[in-house]
Design a protein around this nucleic acid. Structure first.
Lengths: 147, 147
DNA sequence: CACAATTATATTGTGCACAATATAAATACC
DNA sequence: GGTATTTATATTGTGCACAATATAATTGTG
């Protein structure tokens, strides 16, 4: 409307758009590495969590990844179809679906082990910058108001 | 497989996942503000670019936003259906689609003008941290290998 | 000027994200 | 112990992202 407001909108663009674009850039950087083991980035993240603890409920996975069942249910079904995870109802509580790694899912970890280092090499930042980035992002994520 | 590789995978999670999660957090923070003017975050970004220059080709918009026609074409059609933009073929080159703001699209800028400041208040960071964040992210985005 | 190559956008198909709602099981409370 | 509430996951619908392909217009070259 006027110069001041235009400036605000430009500023906004400079703060939040880069984070949104960087997230896509990073996923794009992972893509060729993950295609080699037939995974998408969110699928890789789900496996990262399962490699730490090989059986978890859908909601536990969702807490780690900040994703709900609307995202995870179809994603986990795709991982199941690839033979990487099993899904079964808990005996004690039939509402809970327990997701666990198959042998193939477990053994995929060794094939993924070199991905982080490879990706890091393609990230043009110093160790110090990465630490700074991590610290600030962690602070924002902890304190940003979540509904 | 072994301790070292597990460590790598954990580290990876700590570097890239937070950026991916933060991008979603920020879009979530915008959501209530943008719902008030019936926009999604990517639609808002497209309008930000158009508010700077009220007529552009699809590819020009794509360069600003790092998005291709597969994303932009349906997004722009939705903005057209809302009466916020017009889409017409260029007379000089019929391959080019020129996207321009309607009067409603232009006047929406004033309603969006307070969004950046409101959002910034909900971002728990200092001005210094934001500047640091912006500088490092900008550097990564400039130098990260893009196909 | 014909025609091959390039360019700009659109279409199709897959896979997230996420809101809203549905379903079914477990728990709480009378 | 029966019923209301809560909890856990699934389903549906919308809107991105993006790869792959299609379509059509333009440009380059002989």
């Amino acid at each position: 409307m006027n110069v001041d407001k235009n400036k605000n909108l430009k500023l906004d663009n400079q703060l939040c758009f880069p984070i949104y674009a960087l997230a896509r850039d990073i996923i794009a950087a992972y893509r060729p590495l993950l295609e080699a083991i037939d995974l998408t980035y969110p699928q890789y993240l789900a496996l990262l969590v399962l490699w730490e603890k090989q059986e978890q409920s859908v909601s536990q996975l969702g807490e780690h990844l900040d994703l709900d069942s609307g995202t995870l249910t179809p994603l986990l079904k795709r991982l199941e179809q690839k033979g990487l995870v099993n899904r079964r109802r808990s005996g004690r509580d039939e509402r809970i679906v327990l997701v666990s790694l198959t042998e193939a899912g477990t053994s995929l970890q060794s094939k993924a082990a070199n991905i982080p280092a490879t990706l890091l090499k393609s990230m043009p930042v110093t160790a110090e910058e990465l630490e700074t980035l991590q610290r600030i992002i962690c602070k924002i994520r902890k304190n940003i108001h979540k509904t």
